[in-house]
Amino acid sequence: MPETIALETRRLRKQFGGLVAVDDVDLRVQAGSFHAIIGPNGAGKTTLFNLLSRTLDPTSGQIYFKGRDITRLPLHQTAHLGIGRSFQITNVFPNLSVLENVRLACQAVQPGSFRFWEDHRRLKAVLERAHAVLEQVGLAARAALPARALPQGDQRKLELGMILAPDPSLLLLDEPTAGMAGEQVPELMELIGAVQKRGGKTVVLVEHNMNVVMRASDVITVMHQGARLAEGTPTEITANPAVQSAYLGELYGDLGATQEDA
């Protein structure tokens, strides 16, 4: 049933010199699912995201989005296919206003970017969408501030707003709650969940917060040293002994049990 697979990788590999950051990973993400990727620091999650979002070229292997080979797709075309990606470390336009950051994200996927003779406010649909998104992520009151002036938590909201703005069908979220105050996390996850359900979107989420992962995910893939260690529902993953030794063990500091026994 290839049409129900939103995203697929085949033996996807990335090497940095001698270091294999992503080691022949086969991944299948069901369309409309909430798919979490977990793993200890340095497991290769962000690198995998960089490959999936076309920020990095893979060393070998293929990536398919809705059955289409996107392994060599130019980076700027991914957004037009409906792929949106957020960053672990906030990656915005620091000196532009919050509104402008989101507005640019909307403008990119709508016609009119080459109307160099017209005022940008004439692109009404773009502007309205940007305001609506700011409302949605709770930044409407801060629209005029330069992005760099936002507190950490609001920067994460802006990062999410920029992903939601073009209304992608696949969201690649790299630790969207990193650096957020604890009480803001459920609110943000609820928002992501609501957007996903309402739009029938596919979400691939990297996250360290186990509570968040267990509650939100349909499927969890565990990565360890660049490779796919295990995959299953939250219940299966919690019960998996290999995961416990490789990942949970490491999390709780039991380093003696982290040898690859998978």
């Binding site: 920020t55 700027h76 075309q77 915005v92 336009f93 620091p94 640019l104 990119a108 970017s113 073009p166």
Partner: peptide, 13 residues
């Protein structure tokens, strides 16, 4: 401001 992000938003910079 940030060419990489502009590319990712979908602009052929």
């Amino acid at each position: 401001e940030n060419e990489g992000r502009a590319l990712m938003l979908g602009y052929n910079t």
